[in-house]
Design a protein around this nucleic acid. Structure first.
Lengths: 348, 348
DNA sequence: ATGAAAGCGCTAACAT
DNA sequence: ATGTTAGCGCTTTCAT
């Protein structure tokens, strides 16, 4: 920048004014400066600028794991919107590890980010730091899963309604012995999906023993493991609603290894509608959420806040939609018959 | 930091020395400083530190797209290794867009990263900037695909050998009319895979019309499109080797929409062995590369260089292995018979 | 409208 | 062994 000042024969301050787009600089000088910038291929040092401005063009983004396609899609939505507006995403993989999330959050704060997008793995732990970010002047948005006492901006999906619709569909097909594999009960998204599942059951006057609702970890391994548990139960459920597609994929594997067929013996519905849902066999029915939009909307909120939006708290809730594919069918006849014989008056 | 100095009743420089781990500070002082750090929950401002040191703990990483599971896996390998060593990954999605890659590269340089990991989409364009990074003191490693005149560190897979083994396997099953869908011919990884394919053909004395080797774009859409072209050719190929799994997935779709069956009518082998390969129907045979390792090794190289390794250029080449699944079978009998009738003396 | 200069938080060279 | 201070590249007030 010093060189530019020398080359254009102006002061340092003038160069800065030109670069910051201040209208106070007159045409001849402005032009000379811009030419010098071109000639030298100058790029402003973001470290120095950030230090001085007390703010960089970084937006921090905390997720569990980019190699999970759900998070990857949210990241892309956020990145596209951020990039278009001149902001850059700094991705932090927490791996659902409290310590790692904390380390990232603390350190990233000292990079003076303009904003923070959190898909936390620790509903409790991140809140205090998030508030610190806000106090320090960063715009903060929680996405997909929320801490209970967060009073700032949020973007989520209609978890409960999506789960409700999926469950209702299964019930409509004649399923009476349903089961569910949830994610971590700490996560509000998973909690709401379980609530939607229960709501549909309640409306249909179906009561389920508690063990038919298993709690997993939002990955394939968990899905396999919990589905195995469910398949060993007696009576065996005729439908599994999984709180996300990864769990559903694991469940599909378990069903296969059990020598059972999906959907003939047991129906499966997932959540998220990942790309992979249409590729698996049988193709997986799933509750679609606008994953890319989740990120895009969050980033746009941040950008708006940075640009001075001081309006009240925003809580965007994106719609979900049931995508039916081959993994769903009415319950098997013989099972229904068997159950009827064994428990003629049962509520199940 | 000023506050710490005050609280511990020492000078600013001493605080800095303690934090930088210099052994010159005596125990009593050192302890007082550390206590003050704890008490205040101090975190060093990375912007200021980086500005002064002329280097941050950032490692830039340029990829096409995190939502592509291949890149996501490489990123995770790199992130884990980087994080363990105190470095943070700054992900840049180039989207195979030269301008975007350039923008990211130029701007990120002003964040004074310690290192740069590039999986470039522009074999030519990135080279000049990469050299700039090197000159500026950043460690640079090219991964998976290389510019032709790069003389620095690299990590790649055995693209050619992997493709060779896959093709040889198809030939061994009796396939004589093979086809291939490559990625962008500009990318060295794709080029080497095509070379491996050709090498196996050559050894088996099989000649192919040029149109049986199509060039795509490393995504599903391209796979679908190019496979459609291939399926319309006469004679129709009995096997498709796709330069990556995404292309193979698209090809699988095309085959299905054509009313053909895989592997009965046509065999398919992909490359990368993504998780999804075992979930699709038929499960996809693929050339496995150690995707996670690709990133992990690259990050380790960077860390080593930062820590003073001044040894000669390193060119790590990771092994590949053919993973056979359901998508591969011998060529259909009737086709072979038909072809024999139509072109009794043909080389194909 | 332009220039001069202070200072963001830190490190490192130098002085004590 | 510890303290003092210049300065990294930039923005922003304050003079001019």
């Amino acid at each position: 920048m010093k060189e530019i000042a020398r080359l254009a024969d102006v002061s340092l301050g003038t160069v800065s004014n030109v670069l910051s787009g201040l209208p106070t600089v007159r045409e001849p000088l402005r032009k000379r400066v811009l030419e010098a910038v071109q000639a030298l291929g100058y790029q402003p040092n973001q470290l120095a600028r950030g230090l001085r401005r007390d703010k960089t063009n970084i937006i921090g983004m905390v997720i569990s794991d980019v190699s999970n396609p759900f998070f990857a899609a949210v990241v892309r939505g956020a990145e596209d919107t951020a990039f278009k507006n001149g902001y850059r995403l700094f991705i932090c993989n927490s791996d659902n590890d409290f310590t790692k999330e904390q380390t990232y959050l603390r350190e990233m704060q000292t990079y003076l980010p303009s904003g923070l997008i959190i898909m936390t793995s620790n509903i409790k732990g991140s809140l205090a730091l998030a508030e610190e970010y806000r106090k320090a002047g960063s715009a903060v948005v929680y996405v997909d899963r929320l801490p209970h006492h967060w009073t700032g901006d949020t973007v989520t999906s209609m978890h409960e309604d999506g789960a409700y619709q999926a469950t209702k569909h299964l019930i409509g097909l004649g399923h009476k012995l349903l089961s569910m594999i949830g994610g971590s009960s700490q996560l509000t998204n998973s909690g709401e999906r379980v609530a939607g599942f229960r709501k549909a059951l309640r409306e249909a006057r179906i009561t389920l023993k508690p063990e038919y609702i298993q709690e997993g970890k939002f990955d394939k391994e968990s899905g396999y493991q919990k589905a195995t548990l469910l398949l060993n139960m007696s009576p065996r459920p005729t439908a599994v609603f999984a709180a996300n597609d990864l769990l559903a994929l694991g469940a599909l594997n378990a069903i296969r290894h059990f020598g059972l067929r999906c959907p003939e013996d047991i129906s499966v519905i997932g959540f998220d509608n990942l790309d992979v849902a249409e590729f698996v066999t049988p193709s997986l029915s799933s509750v679609e959420q606008s994953v890319y939009q989740l990120g895009a909307v969050a980033a746009q909120m941040i950008v708006d806040r940075i640009q001075g939006d001081t309006g009240p708290r925003k809580e965007r809730v994106l719609t979900t939609a049931l995508r039916l594919r081959a993994s769903v069918a009415p319950p098997p006849m013989q099972d229904a018959a068997k159950r009827a014989r064994h428990k003629p008056s049962g509520k199940n």
